[in-house]
């Protein structure tokens, strides 16, 4: 399977602050990829490195087989807070899109605006958050990119606008087969629409992969208290919590866990992501057993 994004040891520092460290990724083509993590985890940095707005401090990144650079016709980018020019009308936005992009699809752009019921003579500054996001999405897709990047596109939207935005995005992805990478700090925004997931916490990639494979290989084990390191090879403990008598583990394992002392459950995507986030945030809790 071909990759749209390949990174090796990708690192970005702003002065002394590290925004992204040692990130090695392969993002397959033709997928809707969710980039999830808490605020400040490095999602924006990764996306801006991908579209060429930022240059890496260390490591390499290749997007669609080339070093990313802004001004590429092959990448569409919807930036955080979906910026548009407040004093330009919708029609003027489409006009500048047409002027600035050789591959511009005016029919697609006008069709979307009409479908959304927006007045082309309306100034963008007067649009609601959802409408503004839709306009920014229209600009990004009418340039007909091969890869569409979206930085927290629905974070500021109400549930209805959120749904409408994702409907439009998915319709476009289905029709044109465009690869999509979108970030969010909420798994709920992503779980229906993404089939590939990257979890970013504290500037590092915690886990990435196909959503179904992730769901199939992660289990929640509950049983009598025991040391998680006795689980055996091939089983990675993502998260462990213990009471006096009981241990609850989130485990990544390709083979099913058939130890009868453990009750094994599937996790949903949100629990899975949360397990990786807590693991990164709370190493202290894992050490309860070692102290004894």
């Amino acid at each position: 399977m071909s990759s749209v994004i390949t990174t090796t040891g990708l690192t970005k520092r702003y002065g002394r602050r590290t925004a992204l460290s040692d990130c090695t990724l392969h993002v397959p083509a033709g997928h809707v990829v969710g980039l999830v993590g808490p605020n400040g985890a490095g999602k924006s940095t990764l996306l801006q490195l991908t579209c060429g707005l930022l240059t890496p401090t260390a490591g390499t990144i290749e997007v669609l087989g080339e070093t990313p650079h802004t001004g590429s016709p092959r990448i569409g980018f919807v930036a955080q807070d979906t910026p548009v020019y407040g004093n330009l009308t919708i029609a003027e936005h489409l006009r500048f899109g047409a002027h600035l992009n050789p591959g511009w699809d005016q029919a697609l752009a006008e069709g979307r605006i009409a479908e959304l019921g927006l007045d082309p003579a309306q100034r963008a500054g007067k649009l609601s958050g959802g409408q503004r996001a839709q306009l920014a999405l229209t600009l990004a897709i009418a340039k007909r990119p091969e890869l569409l990047l979206l930085d927290e596109p629905v974070a500021a939207l109400d549930p209805l606008a959120r749904r409408e935005f994702l409907q439009g995005l998915m319709a476009y992805a289905a029709e044109h087969g465009t690869s999509v990478v979108m970030s969010s700090h909420l798994v709920a925004d992503l779980e229906r629409v993404c089939d590939h997931l990257i979890v970013l916490v504290n500037s590092r990639v915690r886990v990435d992969g196909d959503v179904e494979e992730l769901l199939g290989t992660h289990h929640r084990l509950t049983g009598p208290r025991r040391d998680p390191s006795t689980l055996g090879p091939g089983r990675h403990v993502v998260q462990a919590s213990h009471t006096d008598v009981q241990s609850t583990l989130v485990v990544r394992s390709t083979a099913p866990v058939d130890d009868p002392t453990w009750a094994s459950d599937r996790l949903d995507l949100e629990d899975l992501v949360l397990a990786y986030m807590t693991e990164a945030g709370a190493h202290g809790r894992d050490r309860v057993l070692e102290k004894r």
Binding site: C51, T70, S72, P83
Partner: peptide
């Protein structure tokens, strides 16, 4: 300030141009 540089620089036009 308004973030629109991220909009305009992601059209098919280089920052320098």
């Amino acid at each position: 300030e308004t973030g629109t540089h991220r909009l305009v620089w992601n059209q098919t036009v280089s920052r320098r141009r």
